[in-house]
């Protein structure tokens, strides 16, 4: 069960620059904090976020331990063709989730 909130326009004019915003529920455990037993809590972060538009990568970022929990990402893209934007988060402990957004370009 993953919890994601995406804010992207459903339609866009051809050639327009649109903003896509995405928020995901994730603890982003740094790996530097000791737990109640004194041992370090193992790192559990999202390592990489990518966005593709009809298969072509339009945005990517690497995340580190310094990124806050529940990271919010906002980026811009040029709307050239109708299609699907796939947002993908991958990270520690086999974390891999995807969210798809359909955008119609007129």
């Amino acid at each position: 069960m993953s919890n994601i909130l995406v804010n992207a326009p459903k339609t866009a004019r051809r050639g327009a620059v649109i903003e896509i915003k995405a928020l995901i529920l994730h603890p982003m455990e740094t790996g530097f904090r000791p737990g109640p037993n004194g041992r370090l809590i193992p790192r559990n972060i999202i390592e990489r976020f990518t966005a593709t538009w009809n298969g072509t990568e339009i945005f990517a970022m690497d995340m580190s331990s310094a990124i806050a929990a529940n990271p919010f990402v906002s980026f811009f893209a040029e709307a050239n063709e109708s299609g699907t934007v796939v947002l993908r988060w991958t990270g520690d402990e086999g974390f891999a989730v995807e969210e798809r957004v359909a955008i119609a370009v007129e």
Binding site: N3, L5, N7, L23, L25, F72
Partner: peptide
Amino acid sequence: DDTANPGMLFVQL
């Protein structure tokens, strides 16, 4: 903004 408010993630959950 319901898509920027992290509390909404928990409402969704």
